[in-house]
C-alpha cells in the first residue's frame, strides 16, 4: 500500500468520525473542537492532492479564524450542554431518514455516471502558491478586488448588527 493511500483512508476515517462527533456531541464547545478536527483532516486531503495553497488557506481561515470566532461566540453566550433542549424523537428520526435517503440517492446517482477510474494523485503543480497567485493576480484580479469590497461590507454589516439598540431590547 502506498503511503498516499494509507493517508487517504486514515484522513477519511478521521474526517467522518469527527463530523459525526460535531453533530452528536452535547456540548457546543466540543462540537467546535471536533469541527476543527474535520478541517484539519480536510487540509490533509488537500495536501495529498498537492493543493498547497488551499491547504494553507483552509488551515488559517477555517480552522484558525472562523472556528475561533465560533468558539468566541459560544463562550460569550455561555452555552453549555444542558441549555439546549432536544428535538422530538420523531423529528430526529425523520431527519436521519431523509439524510440517509439523500446519501443513498446521491450515491446511486453518481455510482453509474462517474464510474470510471481516474487518477487523482499525480503530477501537477497548479496547486502551488506561486502558480495560483500568478493566475489570481492576472486573470482574476477583478473578482479578487471585488471580494475585498465584500469583506468590507460584511464587516460593516457585522458592526451594525452587533451594535446595541437603545430602545428595541426585549427583556
Amino acid at each position: 500500500m502506498h503511503i498516499n493511500e494509507i493517508l487517504f483512508w486514515f484522513l477519511t476515517a478521521l474526517a467522518l468520525f469527527s463530523a459525526m462527533m460535531v453533530v452528536f456531541s452535547k456540548n457546543p464547545v466540543h462540537s467546535v473542537l471536533w469541527l476543527i478536527m474535520v478541517f484539519i483532516s480536510i487540509t490533509g486531503h488537500y495536501i495529498i492532492m498537492n493543493a498547497q495553497f488551499l491547504a494553507i488557506v483552509n488551515m488559517i481561515v477555517y480552522a484558525g479564524a472562523i472556528m475561533v470566532l465560533f468558539l468566541f461566540v459560544i463562550m460569550f453566550m455561555n452555552l453549555n450542554a444542558e441549555s439546549e433542549p432536544q428535538k422530538s424523537k420523531w423529528m430526529k428520526f425523520a431527519a436521519v431518514l431523509s439524510g440517509g435517503s439523500l446519501m443513498l440517492i446521491l450515491i446511486a446517482a453518481l455510482k453509474d455516471n462517474v464510474g470510471f477510474i481516474s487518477s487523482v494523485h499525480g503530477e501537477g503543480s497548479i496547486g502551488l502558491i506561486k502558480n495560483l497567485g500568478k493566475v489570481l493576480f492576472t486573470e482574476y484580479v477583478v473578482p479578487f478586488e471585488i471580494s475585498s469590497i465584500l469583506f468590507l461590507s460584511a464587516m460593516v454589516g457585522a458592526v451594525v448588527l452587533g451594535k446595541k439598540e437603545p430602545s428595541n431590547t426585549v427583556s
Partner: peptide
C-alpha cells in the same frame, strides 16, 4: 498511485449528508 475519483465523491457525499443530518436534528443555531 492511481486513486479513483469515486472515493472522493463518496467522502464528500458522506460529509455533506452528515452536515444535513446535523442541520435537521439540532436546534442550536450555532
Amino acid at each position: 498511485q492511481v486513486m479513483p475519483i469515486n472515493y472522493y465523491i463518496f467522502l464528500s457525499v458522506a460529509l455533506f449528508t452528515i452536515g444535513i443530518v446535523g442541520v435537521l436534528t439540532r436546534r442550536n443555531a450555532i
